[in-house]
Amino acid sequence: MSESRNRILEALKAHSSEADLPSPPVYKPQLTWSKDEKLDCFQTMLESVHGEVHRIQEDQLGEKLAQLLKQKEVKRLLCSPKFPQAIYDGLNAIECLRYDRHISEWKEELFNSVDASITTTLCGVAQTGTLVLWPDREEPRLASLVPPIHIAVVEADTIVETFAEAISEGNWASQMPTNALLISGPSKTADIEQILAYGIHGPKQLIVLIVNNQE
């Protein structure tokens, strides 16, 4: 290992005391929300940062998607194979693209001529109106980032109260993916006079479909 590494570590070790500080307690905000309260908070928080939220039943996904894409004048949609093919069947004139090649083979196209994407989510976080994504081969990292519209589907049952809960309940520490992502709204900036402007680099619109699983 490098000389600098040893120099830094030795300097740090020379000034470390043996005594242990008590470990900080694990952060557990005490919230006790019902499922409806969680859903309401999730939606309110997302809408407060310009997220567009729709609550639907599972069997309405295809219909809602077609309606939204028409309304947003989307011509080319980046699809996810994680949804049943049936949801794409009614999209008619809309071109459905698959992210099935390495990015280097179609970077220009992805950056310049895809209007929207749809992805699943790992879970939602009610307290902050946050979507949690663990991108993978079927839904690569740039899918939720590069197209100007990102449609994210959240199953109502997966919504937890806090980020801390998502980490502990999902046992993240033992299985971190290449990239874990929290998304809370569309891309924005306030770098000019603290005035909010949306869609600086990432999606300009974030559309969240909360799917209520019928029991």
Partner: peptide
């Protein structure tokens, strides 16, 4: 910092692109 309950993105990176992955 900015008076936001959370920022738009919180990006957690734990590895380079794995062999089967398509970007990163």
């Amino acid at each position: 910092a900015t008076g936001q309950p959370i920022t738009t993105y919180f990006n957690m990176i734990s590895s380079p692109r794995k062999e089967h992955e398509l970007d990163g």
